[in-house]
Nucleic acid binder design. Sequence first.
DNA 1: GGCCGGATCCGCGCAGAGCGGAACCGTCCC
DNA 2: GGGACGGTTCCGCTCTGCGCGGATCCGGCC
Lengths: 118, 118
Amino acid sequence: MASSVSPLRPAIVRTDPKPSPPREPLWRHALGECLRGLRHERGEKLSETARRAGVSPQYLSEMERGVKEPSSEMIAAVAGALDVTLVDLTLAVAESLRSAQSSASRGATCSAVYALAA
Amino acid sequence: MASSVSPLRPAIVRTDPKPSPPREPLWRHALGECLRGLRHERGEKLSETARRAGVSPQYLSEMERGVKEPSSEMIAAVAGALDVTLVDLTLAVAESLRSAQSSASRGATCSAVYALAA
DNA sequence: GGCCGGATCCGCGCAGAGCGGAACCGTCCC
DNA sequence: GGGACGGTTCCGCTCTGCGCGGATCCGGCC
Protein backbone atom coordinates (compact mmCIF):
# COMPACT_ATOMS: atom_id res chain seq x y z
CA MET A 1 0.00 0.00 0.00
CA ALA A 2 3.04 2.25 -0.31
CA SER A 3 1.83 3.53 -3.71
CA SER A 4 1.61 7.13 -2.53
CA VAL A 5 4.94 8.74 -3.37
CA SER A 6 6.44 12.28 -3.18
CA PRO A 7 7.11 12.29 0.56
CA LEU A 8 7.83 15.78 1.78
CA ARG A 9 9.49 14.03 4.64
CA PRO A 10 10.19 10.44 5.59
CA ALA A 11 7.63 8.62 7.66
CA ILE A 12 8.02 9.34 11.32
CA VAL A 13 8.74 6.07 13.05
CA ARG A 14 7.75 6.38 16.64
CA THR A 15 9.83 3.55 17.96
CA ASP A 16 12.22 3.28 20.83
CA PRO A 17 15.08 5.66 20.09
CA LYS A 18 17.53 4.70 22.80
CA PRO A 19 15.88 3.61 26.02
CA SER A 20 17.79 3.63 29.28
CA PRO A 21 18.96 0.35 30.81
CA PRO A 22 16.87 -2.51 29.44
CA ARG A 23 14.33 -4.35 31.55
CA GLU A 24 13.27 -1.13 33.17
CA PRO A 25 9.53 -0.58 32.84
CA LEU A 26 8.25 2.38 30.89
CA TRP A 27 6.74 5.39 32.58
CA ARG A 28 3.24 4.66 31.34
CA HIS A 29 3.30 1.16 32.76
CA ALA A 30 4.61 2.19 36.14
CA LEU A 31 2.13 5.04 36.32
CA GLY A 32 -0.76 2.86 35.31
CA GLU A 33 -0.03 0.27 37.94
CA CYS A 34 0.07 2.96 40.57
CA LEU A 35 -3.21 4.46 39.47
CA ARG A 36 -4.95 1.07 39.54
CA GLY A 37 -3.44 0.29 42.91
CA LEU A 38 -4.63 3.58 44.35
CA ARG A 39 -8.11 3.07 42.95
CA HIS A 40 -8.34 -0.41 44.42
CA GLU A 41 -7.10 0.94 47.73
CA ARG A 42 -10.16 3.18 47.75
CA GLY A 43 -12.37 0.28 46.76
CA GLU A 44 -13.61 2.13 43.73
CA LYS A 45 -14.79 1.00 40.33
CA LEU A 46 -13.31 2.14 37.05
CA SER A 47 -16.51 3.95 36.15
CA GLU A 48 -16.63 5.88 39.44
CA THR A 49 -13.10 7.20 39.31
CA ALA A 50 -13.39 7.88 35.60
CA ARG A 51 -16.55 9.90 36.07
CA ARG A 52 -15.04 12.00 38.81
CA ALA A 53 -11.92 12.56 36.77
CA GLY A 54 -13.98 13.53 33.75
CA VAL A 55 -12.58 10.80 31.51
CA SER A 56 -14.15 7.75 29.90
CA PRO A 57 -13.98 4.43 31.77
CA GLN A 58 -12.49 2.84 28.69
CA TYR A 59 -9.68 5.32 28.72
CA LEU A 60 -8.97 4.99 32.40
CA SER A 61 -8.74 1.25 31.87
CA GLU A 62 -6.17 1.84 29.16
CA MET A 63 -4.24 4.26 31.34
CA GLU A 64 -4.10 1.77 34.16
CA ARG A 65 -2.87 -0.98 31.83
CA GLY A 66 -0.21 1.31 30.44
CA VAL A 67 -1.34 0.98 26.84
CA LYS A 68 -1.88 4.71 26.34
CA GLU A 69 0.23 7.77 27.01
CA PRO A 70 -1.98 10.08 29.05
CA SER A 71 -1.39 13.81 28.82
CA SER A 72 -0.23 15.70 31.87
CA GLU A 73 -3.71 17.11 32.27
CA MET A 74 -5.16 13.61 32.25
CA ILE A 75 -2.69 12.48 34.86
CA ALA A 76 -3.63 15.46 36.99
CA ALA A 77 -7.33 14.80 36.55
CA VAL A 78 -7.14 11.18 37.60
CA ALA A 79 -4.83 12.05 40.47
CA GLY A 80 -7.39 14.58 41.62
CA ALA A 81 -10.16 11.99 41.39
CA LEU A 82 -8.05 9.70 43.56
CA ASP A 83 -7.37 12.52 46.01
CA VAL A 84 -3.62 12.46 45.54
CA THR A 85 -1.33 15.25 44.42
CA LEU A 86 1.11 14.91 41.55
CA VAL A 87 3.86 15.00 44.15
CA ASP A 88 2.52 12.00 46.00
CA LEU A 89 1.65 10.18 42.81
CA THR A 90 5.07 10.69 41.28
CA LEU A 91 6.72 9.68 44.54
CA ALA A 92 4.58 6.58 44.72
CA VAL A 93 5.54 5.66 41.17
CA ALA A 94 9.21 6.19 41.97
CA GLU A 95 9.07 4.09 45.11
CA SER A 96 7.16 1.40 43.28
CA LEU A 97 9.77 1.36 40.55
CA ARG A 98 12.50 1.17 43.15
CA SER A 99 10.88 -1.71 44.95
CA ALA A 100 10.38 -3.60 41.74
CA GLN A 101 14.02 -2.93 40.90
CA SER A 102 15.58 -4.05 44.16
CA SER A 103 13.56 -7.24 44.17
CA ALA A 104 13.04 -8.85 40.81
CA SER A 105 9.83 -10.32 42.16
CA ARG A 106 7.72 -7.19 41.68
CA GLY A 107 8.12 -6.13 45.30
CA ALA A 108 5.61 -3.86 46.96
CA THR A 109 2.65 -2.68 44.97
CA CYS A 110 2.04 0.96 44.45
CA SER A 111 -0.88 1.15 46.82
CA ALA A 112 1.16 -0.38 49.62
CA VAL A 113 3.96 2.09 48.97
CA TYR A 114 1.56 4.99 49.08
CA ALA A 115 0.04 3.69 52.28
CA LEU A 116 3.48 3.67 53.86
CA ALA A 117 4.12 7.20 52.68
CA ALA A 118 0.86 8.43 54.15
CA MET B 1 -15.04 26.66 8.96
CA ALA B 2 -17.49 24.19 10.46
CA SER B 3 -19.12 23.58 7.06
CA SER B 4 -18.34 19.88 7.14
CA VAL B 5 -21.33 18.22 8.74
CA SER B 6 -22.33 14.61 9.56
CA PRO B 7 -20.07 14.26 12.56
CA LEU B 8 -19.67 10.63 13.46
CA ARG B 9 -18.54 11.90 16.80
CA PRO B 10 -18.13 15.27 18.45
CA ALA B 11 -14.77 16.97 18.29
CA ILE B 12 -12.39 15.70 20.91
CA VAL B 13 -11.46 18.63 23.08
CA ARG B 14 -8.19 17.95 24.76
CA THR B 15 -8.56 20.38 27.58
CA ASP B 16 -8.18 20.02 31.29
CA PRO B 17 -10.85 17.58 32.42
CA LYS B 18 -10.53 17.91 36.18
CA PRO B 19 -7.00 18.55 37.37
CA SER B 20 -5.97 17.86 40.94
CA PRO B 21 -5.46 20.76 43.35
CA PRO B 22 -4.79 23.96 41.37
CA ARG B 23 -1.39 25.63 41.30
CA GLU B 24 0.32 22.26 41.07
CA PRO B 25 2.63 22.03 38.07
CA LEU B 26 1.90 19.57 35.33
CA TRP B 27 3.94 16.42 34.90
CA ARG B 28 5.53 17.58 31.66
CA HIS B 29 6.75 20.80 33.22
CA ALA B 30 8.21 19.13 36.28
CA LEU B 31 9.84 16.47 34.14
CA GLY B 32 11.26 19.00 31.73
CA GLU B 33 12.85 21.06 34.46
CA CYS B 34 14.47 17.96 35.86
CA LEU B 35 15.85 16.90 32.52
CA ARG B 36 17.33 20.34 31.88
CA GLY B 37 18.78 20.44 35.37
CA LEU B 38 20.40 17.04 34.95
CA ARG B 39 21.82 18.03 31.57
CA HIS B 40 23.31 21.23 32.99
CA GLU B 41 24.73 19.25 35.89
CA ARG B 42 26.69 17.26 33.34
CA GLY B 43 27.74 20.45 31.53
CA GLU B 44 26.25 19.20 28.30
CA LYS B 45 24.72 20.95 25.34
CA LEU B 46 21.25 20.27 23.99
CA SER B 47 22.69 18.84 20.79
CA GLU B 48 24.99 16.42 22.63
CA THR B 49 22.36 14.90 24.87
CA ALA B 50 19.85 14.84 22.03
CA ARG B 51 22.21 12.99 19.73
CA ARG B 52 23.03 10.38 22.34
CA ALA B 53 19.34 9.95 23.10
CA GLY B 54 18.54 9.63 19.43
CA VAL B 55 16.15 12.59 19.34
CA SER B 56 16.30 15.96 17.66
CA PRO B 57 17.74 18.92 19.58
CA GLN B 58 14.60 20.89 18.82
CA TYR B 59 12.52 18.25 20.47
CA LEU B 60 14.70 17.93 23.52
CA SER B 61 14.42 21.70 23.92
CA GLU B 62 10.65 21.38 23.83
CA MET B 63 10.70 18.53 26.32
CA GLU B 64 12.83 20.50 28.73
CA ARG B 65 10.50 23.50 28.47
CA GLY B 66 7.50 21.29 29.09
CA VAL B 67 5.70 22.25 25.90
CA LYS B 68 5.44 18.71 24.58
CA GLU B 69 4.24 15.44 26.07
CA PRO B 70 7.07 13.01 25.45
CA SER B 71 6.24 9.35 25.08
CA SER B 72 7.49 6.90 27.66
CA GLU B 73 10.09 5.67 25.20
CA MET B 74 11.35 9.22 24.73
CA ILE B 75 11.58 9.73 28.45
CA ALA B 76 13.54 6.50 28.72
CA ALA B 77 15.84 7.49 25.88
CA VAL B 78 16.73 10.86 27.34
CA ALA B 79 17.13 9.36 30.79
CA GLY B 80 19.54 6.87 29.31
CA ALA B 81 21.48 9.64 27.60
CA LEU B 82 21.75 11.40 30.95
CA ASP B 83 22.84 8.17 32.63
CA VAL B 84 19.90 8.04 35.01
CA THR B 85 17.31 5.31 35.46
CA LEU B 86 13.60 5.95 35.31
CA VAL B 87 13.55 5.26 39.04
CA ASP B 88 16.03 8.00 39.82
CA LEU B 89 14.47 10.38 37.33
CA THR B 90 10.96 9.88 38.67
CA LEU B 91 12.23 10.22 42.22
CA ALA B 92 14.07 13.41 41.33
CA VAL B 93 10.92 14.82 39.77
CA ALA B 94 8.92 13.91 42.85
CA GLU B 95 11.40 15.46 45.24
CA SER B 96 11.62 18.55 43.07
CA LEU B 97 7.84 18.85 43.09
CA ARG B 98 7.83 18.41 46.86
CA SER B 99 10.47 21.07 47.39
CA ALA B 100 8.65 23.48 45.16
CA GLN B 101 5.46 22.71 47.08
CA SER B 102 6.82 23.16 50.59
CA SER B 103 8.46 26.45 49.66
CA ALA B 104 6.50 28.59 47.28
CA SER B 105 9.79 30.05 46.09
CA ARG B 106 10.68 27.17 43.73
CA GLY B 107 12.96 25.57 46.30
CA ALA B 108 15.72 23.20 45.26
CA THR B 109 16.29 22.58 41.61
CA CYS B 110 16.03 19.12 40.22
CA SER B 111 19.75 18.71 39.72
CA ALA B 112 20.47 19.59 43.32
CA VAL B 113 17.85 17.10 44.47
CA TYR B 114 19.39 14.40 42.36
CA ALA B 115 22.82 15.20 43.71
CA LEU B 116 21.51 14.72 47.22
CA ALA B 117 19.97 11.43 46.25
CA ALA B 118 23.23 10.21 44.74
C1' DG C 1 31.05 43.50 8.88
C1' DG C 2 31.44 38.16 8.91
C1' DC C 3 31.33 33.37 10.95
C1' DC C 4 30.09 30.02 14.33
C1' DG C 5 27.61 27.45 17.85
C1' DG C 6 23.61 26.96 21.01
C1' DA C 7 18.91 27.25 21.47
C1' DT C 8 14.31 28.20 19.83
C1' DC C 9 10.61 29.06 16.19
C1' DC C 10 7.77 27.35 12.58
C1' DG C 11 5.18 24.36 9.70
C1' DC C 12 4.40 19.71 8.50
C1' DG C 13 3.03 14.35 7.97
C1' DC C 14 1.04 11.01 10.27
C1' DA C 15 0.93 8.36 14.75
C1' DG C 16 -1.82 7.87 18.47
C1' DA C 17 -4.80 10.25 22.30
C1' DG C 18 -9.24 9.86 23.95
C1' DC C 19 -13.84 8.41 23.06
C1' DG C 20 -18.54 5.81 22.08
C1' DG C 21 -20.52 1.56 20.88
C1' DA C 22 -20.00 -3.25 21.23
C1' DA C 23 -18.34 -7.33 23.26
C1' DC C 24 -16.74 -10.31 26.97
C1' DC C 25 -16.91 -12.15 31.54
C1' DG C 26 -18.53 -13.24 36.15
C1' DT C 27 -22.22 -13.15 39.42
C1' DC C 28 -26.85 -13.52 40.78
C1' DC C 29 -31.64 -14.96 40.47
C1' DC C 30 -35.54 -17.63 38.45
C1' DG D 1 -30.98 -24.23 31.44
C1' DG D 2 -32.29 -19.10 30.83
C1' DG D 3 -31.94 -13.92 31.53
C1' DA D 4 -30.40 -9.52 33.78
C1' DC D 5 -26.85 -6.84 35.62
C1' DG D 6 -22.41 -4.65 36.52
C1' DG D 7 -17.38 -4.26 35.69
C1' DT D 8 -13.90 -4.28 32.43
C1' DT D 9 -11.86 -4.62 27.97
C1' DC D 10 -12.05 -4.65 22.73
C1' DC D 11 -12.64 -2.18 18.52
C1' DG D 12 -12.80 1.40 15.24
C1' DC D 13 -12.94 6.16 14.68
C1' DT D 14 -11.91 11.51 14.52
C1' DC D 15 -8.77 14.84 14.91
C1' DT D 16 -5.13 16.51 18.04
C1' DG D 17 -0.48 17.06 18.67
C1' DC D 18 4.14 14.28 18.60
C1' DG D 19 8.60 14.52 16.79
C1' DC D 20 11.16 16.33 13.07
C1' DG D 21 13.80 19.33 9.39
C1' DG D 22 14.56 23.82 7.82
C1' DA D 23 14.79 28.44 9.25
C1' DT D 24 15.61 31.96 12.55
C1' DC D 25 17.37 34.35 16.61
C1' DC D 26 20.98 35.42 19.75
C1' DG D 27 25.51 35.93 21.74
C1' DG D 28 30.43 35.44 21.31
C1' DC D 29 34.55 35.86 18.67
C1' DC D 30 37.65 37.60 14.92
